[in-house]
Nucleic acid binder design. Structure first.
Lengths: 225, 225
DNA sequence: CAACATATACGGCACTTGTCGATAATCATC
DNA sequence: GATGATTATCGACAAGTGCCGTATATGTTG
């Protein structure tokens, strides 16, 4: 899953590892000089690999190089990295934050005056952020790769769904998705499909409902920390 | 995406590549002897890598080894490979097949007397298999990693959902999942949620409904080729 | 516990990496 | 078309891989 592993894998399994190395260096837009500088090596080293004079670099070498590329990219603001992992933010996610310190699911629910309706077994989970999702916009405008972005840094977070009708679809989406949130909130749902509750139970994800007005909800979310 | 690349990536980026090598060899359940035999090498070679005497095998070495593991597994019937792409079959998927030659989505629909209700733009897609999914069982018994197994070798296949109520949840699941089918069929759905149709449209996945009795449906599926 | 299959350990040798530094070739671009 | 940055090429040498064969452990299982 790690991007660096994917890159490394591609390099290793490539016919000409040197070419693959170069490809990724260019994707990251880093010069041989900068890259080797970062590693305390002389530029000719990289050139030798890329051009194939050394045809089978050791895994430690590849490791160092890939890590260096990722680090350099990160120092620059992580542009490339992000382009290759998550996508640009869409309006389907009106709010999204990471906490500096964890907060118990229990407390989270309390703060937004939520009523727990399922997944009670894991109320003492620690959450590290939340994402607010406009259900309708999400399913109509988000691409599948966008879905990953719903989860920020940690998937141990609350997902708050707005505009929920029965709550069945969001829970099915969660069920079918490899990343699981630590808490699910429905904001002013129509009615609740028992299946939604059952899925929360099966996945051991606390599920709660809040009826706070939207602005009040955002208010309380922002005050959290 | 290639499993071999994922394995290679994991090996290369691992702290101890030797350990990772061993891990995968064991997952594939291949002895050092068999593996090295396949490569025309002596077993001590592998042992030396795995135990770390040679700490940084060259990429060509890793490549050879990973390829050998995959090949051996394939010669044996590809058990492990499959387990890592798809999982063991659950009753939520009563039927699932790969075709030997592709079939047009159009033809597929015709064969099962389907009525197209969305995603008409891509009727000439070629399908390479199908999976029948018992909707209720699927969402209640499949784990998220199981969901991958719905897709056999190719995601260019038809997904046939049984026991659909409105068709909303299956389409949302598809929407949120990175792998997309080439055709979606609902078997005797209750009513159809317009959103399901819209999603089919957005994803450019033909969506059709069939009212054939179940046994007749299976009959026709089996006759396909 | 034999007997067998499997895995580890290790000395040894040819060949390749890993690394430098210096020089030569490319490539923008002012 | 001269300047500066980027990449390519290459000889050199220490360190390490790639490979073998054999000897030794470490399991299994009849």
């Amino acid at each position: 899953m790690e991007l660096s592993e994917r890159i490394a894998g591609e390099i290793v399994m490539s016919e000409e590892p040197g070419k693959a190395l170069r490809k990724w260096r260019q994707i990251f837009d880093i010069s041989q000089k900068e890259l080797t500088g970062h590693l305390g090596l002389s530029p000719s080293v990289l050139s030798d690999y890329e051009s194939g004079r050394r045809g089978s670099p050791g895994v430690k070498m590849v490791q160092k190089i890939v890590n260096a590329m990722v680090e350099i990219d990160q120092n620059r603001g992580g542009g490339t990295l992000e382009r290759y992992s998550e996508d640009s933010i869409s309006e389907a996610i009106p709010d999204k934050r990471e906490f500096t310190k964890g907060i118990l699911a229990e407390e989270f629910i309390e703060t937004i005056e939520g009523r727990v309706i399922g997944g009670k077994s894991r109320m003492r989970r620690i959450l590290w952020g939340y994402s607010v999702i406009d259900s309708l916009k999400a399913i109509t405008t988000l691409s599948s790769s966008d879905y990953l972005k719903v989860y920020g840094y940690s998937s141990e977070r609350a997902l708050i769904f707005l505009g929920v009708m029965y709550g069945r679809s969001p829970m099915v989406a969660i069920r079918s998705h490899p990343l699981k949130p630590g808490l699910v909130i429905f904001h002013q749902p129509g009615s609740i499909d028992p299946l939604a509750v059952e899925l929360a139970e099966v996945e051991h994800i606390p599920l709660a409902v809040t009826d706070l007005p939207l602005d009040e909800l955002f208010e309380r979310l922002h005050k959290m920390n």
